[in-house]
Simulated assay, not measured.
Amino acid sequence: MAAKILLIALLALASSHALASDPSPLQDFCVADMDSKVRVNGFVCKDPTVVKAEDFFSTGLDKAGDTGKKLGSNVTAVNVNKIVGLNTLGISMVRIDYAPKGLNAPHTHPRATEILTVIEGQLFVGFVTSNSDNGNRLFTKMLKKGDVFVFPEGLIHFQFNPGHTNTVAIGALSSQNPGTITIANAVFGSKPPISDEVLAKAFQVDKKTIDWLQAQF
């Protein structure tokens, strides 16, 4: 009896894990119909008889992104909003450009694991585990050209270029639309703003500090 209960529990765990990421496609492709008014989890399929090769195509990843922003980095995403043929295929990618001392600020992808490859330059990268599993343990690594690093799904992670030359990285993500939550933007730049009383207590600082931080976003 105990063995049967354990088997059921393992099957339930396996099935829940299978449903945790994008669902598997049930046909060759489901090119997103961005003009459809129907709302589903993903995008409605375009009529396959009008699908073109261009629905699976994009250009521009050879061009450097603008790193002249405050943080000195730029993310060029290639997801289902860029290539409609990615709909239901469970994959997307990004090009990230970093100026010297450029930072891709701490953020999460709520629907995807990311695997990152450094193409040029160097990066200091890291992620933080969840509160309960490993007590917010920090994993970091210095990467050079050709190195690869994985950021598990949903965990806060970052990349920083410590060098004096530009860095380029390519990332692949296990979702057609992984989403991005930049921690500082979400906490201090929400609309409407989170109460300064709540944030002051959460971060154990005074309200003036919170007001100043919110003003930056």
Rank of each mutant, 00 (worst) to 15 (best):
G65L: 09
P152H: 04
T59P: 02
L143R: 13
L143W: 09
L13R: 01
V75E: 09
K207N: 05
C45L: 12
F149A: 03
A12G: 12
R95K: 15
L123P: 08
V51Q: 08
N166V: 00
F158M: 08
E54S: 15
A32L: 10
T209M: 07
A9C: 11
I83P: 01
Q159F: 02
K201N: 11
K201C: 03
N81E: 07
L6C: 05
T180M: 06
K46E: 09
T108L: 15
K82E: 14
M34G: 02
P178Q: 15
T49Y: 12
S24L: 14
F43D: 04
Q122N: 06
R137Q: 09
A169D: 03
K201T: 11
D66Y: 14
A184P: 06
S132I: 05
P100W: 07
F188G: 08
V44S: 14
R95I: 04
L199F: 03
D22S: 13
I156K: 13
A3Y: 04
T88G: 05
T140Y: 01
Q159C: 00
F56N: 06
F124R: 09
L10F: 09
W212Y: 12
K52H: 13
N131R: 11
K208F: 05
S58Q: 12
L173Y: 05
M93R: 02
K207M: 09
L138R: 08
F158Y: 10
L11S: 09
E114W: 07
T180S: 15
A64G: 02
A2W: 05
Q176A: 14
N79M: 13
A112Y: 05
P192E: 09
Q214C: 07
A53W: 01
S21E: 13
V205W: 01
T108W: 12
I91T: 11
K141H: 02
N104P: 05
R39H: 11
F127A: 07
E197H: 13
A14C: 07
L11K: 13
I181V: 15
L61S: 11
F29W: 08
M1S: 15
I91P: 06
H164P: 00
D147C: 01
D97T: 04
L143M: 13
A18Y: 12
A169F: 00
N134L: 08
I170E: 00
D196N: 13
Y98M: 06
S174I: 02
V187A: 14
I194V: 13
D66I: 10
V168E: 00
L7I: 04
R39M: 10
S174C: 02
A184F: 12
T59R: 14
G42M: 05
K69P: 02
F188S: 06
T76C: 06
G68Y: 08
H17D: 06
D28F: 06
M1W: 14
V40M: 11
L199N: 00
G146F: 03
T129M: 04
D211W: 03
V38D: 14
D28T: 09
V80W: 09
G85Q: 01
L103M: 14
E153W: 01
N134I: 01
S24V: 01
